[in-house]
Design a protein around this nucleic acid. Structure first.
Lengths: 131, 131, 131, 131
DNA sequence: GTGGTCTAGACCACG
DNA sequence: GTGGTCTAGACCACA
């Protein structure tokens, strides 16, 4: 699926949550497809099952996943379309954080943009490779 | 000086640390200049002095600030030049995080870059305005 | 584990930090082994948990300990090998301080060396005894 | 006279105190000789006069220096001979501290001793050179 | 349960 | 006045 980075300051459940969202955004997980069981993914990621459960729960609350009790967890048929305002809000916050650290380490705007382009494409490519 | 965002998941002491680094990177704090006393900045930011002290101490350990006991705290004359590799490493990590969230919310690369440019310039401009 | 000396001018958090390093250097704490929880060690040493936390945090930043959030703290598998230059630097500084006080109290070199040998062996022996 | 090391964790007044004791132990300051005035030494060392005054005061209390008001400060004619027990006590404490840091950084006893011998001789030699 | 952070308030060393 | 340290106690995030 994807990797967990213990050194990442972000909590593990959030890394999982974002990982699932990314897989859906990239088309690796199609609507209606089943996602691994909590226990399987936990074992796979070497992580506490509670942690995976929390990520799944949040995704279900957000309408991204659909839990069928006793059966399994699936990608929801209709992916919730975040209002453009919301989406942009989240992106903007992330952009401010990124720009701030770029300035803090003394990087020029051009370098900051370059890094983003590289990183973006690498994330996508890395995904494709595994698929 | 700068603002603290309690909603930011980053700990306050880190926000202060980065804020000081940013001011130095922007030239607002010149080498040799004195930074506000722990107590003053704490009062200014409505924050506990220990929190400011923690940030200052980390900056001093990193060679960014110079502590003169009983006298005050100053911007070090020679700013430690992080090796380009290190600097780029930090920037790259931030870029990956940013790109990941951009992908997770379904943004195209162009939008992600746009947001970074806007944010970068806004941070710089905001600084100039206050100066 | 080890003892804290309130009369020592060194801050307690540093005594703890060095104590842990010593235990690792002596092999009493093997890589991968778990160290006492912050609260347990604090109770054991009759010290505030924050003080222990500070020491652990510094050791974690230095790569000596590995923090698993919500789980515990462990001795890192790969101990950071300080470059011989660095290690010798630290030792040399300590040696200069020691030699200076020896001279200041009027001790001959032989006596100073004798004391070091005795102290070194006593520290090691004391450790062995507790093990 | 001697140098002050701001990076040394030891307080400056103690560095001065030990420096004077060392000069006397080495014979550079003979009984009856005058030591620099508080203000002169402070200017020389780029240090606050209060700091030098504190060191002188402690030395005078210990009978090492003799203050003649309005005239100057002198090395006492009879240097107080610390009882061997006391002297050894101070040396022993220093030795334990030194041995502990040596072990903490992973040095063998031989290396620790070597460093002490080198440091001791260097301090003496450095003094002779300046004399 | 774990560690991480923040606060309020105290004391000390230093200049 | 400055920064450094410690305490006690609280809350949070995480597993």
């Amino acid at each position: 699926m994807f990797a967990i980075n213990p050194a990442d300051p972000a909590p593990i459940w959030r890394q999982i949550e974002e990982g699932v969202r990314r897989l859906i955004a990239l088309g690796a997980l199609q609507p209606g497809a089943s996602v691994p069981s909590v226990r399987d993914l936990a074992k796979d990621l070497r992580v506490n099952p509670n942690t995976v459960a929390r990520a799944y729960q949040r995704l279900a609350e957000g309408g991204v996943l659909l839990v069928k009790r006793g059966e399994g967890t699936y990608v929801a048929d209709e992916q919730p379309q975040p209002k453009k305002a919301q989406r942009n809000g989240a992106l903007r916050d992330a952009a401010v954080r990124y720009a701030s650290t770029a300035i803090a380490v003394g990087s020029a705007l051009e370098d900051a943009v370059d890094e983003v382009e590289t990183a973006y494409q690498r994330v996508v490519r890395e995904h494709r490779r595994k698929a």
